[in-house]
Design a binder for these strands. Structure first.
Length: 310
RNA sequence: CGCGGGGUAGAGCAGUUCGGUAGCUCGUCGGGCUCAUAACCCGGAGGUCAAGGGUUCAAAUCCCUUCCCCGCAA
């Protein structure tokens, strides 16, 4: 079976590794073009490109996968099956029609809930206690295709987006493996998504990392851990943009308005009033500085009680 | 050559504008006080001020070079 693999970030790596390890015939790996990134604008390869090169697989990178030359390339590969996992571009019907058995996608949620590009982070932001992996036949809609296999996992109460992302990447490879085996054995069952149960969440934007202290303590804590380490949540304090890397709930007798600093010393820590309850900032980062323990930071850079994060 | 911030005691920072004895908070060590404590009081140790070169009577501070860390943007 000739397989074309479409993926870009780390999420897709375990799946590609599994395909190669299980002896599947991956005839082409498609990923997003190399981009200048990081300090100094150095060009870096995506995790999938790195892995594909390591495995000795041919790599294809198209600026727009819908362009005729890209579609022709896919058709010329004479694929039996396409596998996608966080590729990063929307596929066209012509592409989906190219492989004999269609296109199977690995999605990091329990569909039809959390359709969209950032299901992992959104699940944590919304305080979900479980999520999972769904494999599906890709259709022209956004994560709307018929579902194949589904597996759920609990979300830890303090788990970060990065940690869950890693777990789901591994689980995704596992579910994909079972899906392909079922496909070979002819036991694969398609089940349509129920539209009335569907939910869609958009891509993450940097505005989402700006903390709103009128939210409840739990919402703030969930948001900070959901976005970590992709984005570090931040708030403005006395004109400085301060990153609050890790929050936890705090008990204190003091009260204030949302965002107001209730305690700020090395013994009790940095505790901030929210719309509902209070949060302690465990780790903090100032502009130009490294991430540090908030209690240590207060020794050299005090914050006054009554100052307001906004 | 994308833009910017930073490197000072074990930790976190001030001091750099305008060159003139190396400071603060905490920790640590010793002592004291207390029924007692993460409390309080007294005292001590701990720094080639990232590295190299230059200017100067004198450099953490001014000039040049290098190394390392961080944020933004992508």
């Amino acid at each position: 079976m000739r397989i074309g693999f479409f993926g870009t970030p780390y999420f897709a790596v375990p799946s590609l590794k599994m395909l190669a390890g299980e002896g599947y015939n991956v005839v082409g790996v498609f990923c997003q073009p190399d981009r200048k990134s990081g300090r100094g604008h150095k060009v870096s390869f995506s995790p999938i490109k790195e892995k594909a090169l390591e495995l000795g697989l041919p790599v294809f990178q198209f600026e727009k996968i819908k362009n005729p030359e890209a579609v022709k390339q896919i058709e010329d590969l004479n694929l039996d099956l396409m596998v996608t996992a966080a590729y990063g571009q929307i596929l066209s019907q012509a592409i989906l029609d190219a492989p004999k058995y269609g296109c199977i996608n690995v999605h990091a949620s329990l569909l039809p809930k959390y359709r969209g590009a950032a299901p992992i982070q959104w699940a944590i932001i919304n305080g979900e206690t479980s999520t999972g992996i769904t494999t599906m036949f890709t259709d022209i809609g956004l994560d709307t295709g018929d579902m194949l296999l589904k597996r759920a996992v609990p979300i830890g109460p303090e788990e970060t987006g990065g940690e869950l992302y890693e777990r789901l990447a591994v689980l995704g490879a596992d579910v994909l493996k079972d899906t392909l085996e079922a496909l070979r054995e002819g036991t694969l069952v398609r089940s349509p998504q129920k539209e009335e149960e569907a939910s869609y969440y958009p891509m993450l934007t940097k505005e989402m990392a700006k903390l709103d202290f009128t939210q409840s303590a739990k919402q703030l804590i969930d948001r900070v851990r959901a976005l970590y380490p992709i984005m570090r949540c931040h708030a403005s304090l006395n004109g400085e943009d301060v990153k609050l890397i890790q929050l936890k709930s705090a008990q204190t007798g003091a009260k204030g308005k949302p965002g107001e600093v209730l305690t700020a010393d090395a013994k009790q820590g940095l505790i901030i009033q929210t719309g509902e309850g209070a949060v302690e900032t465990v780790q903090i980062q100032y502009p130009g500085g490294k991430v540090m323990e908030a209690k240590a930071s207060l020794l050299g850079k005090p914050i006054a009680v009554g100052d307001v994060f906004e």
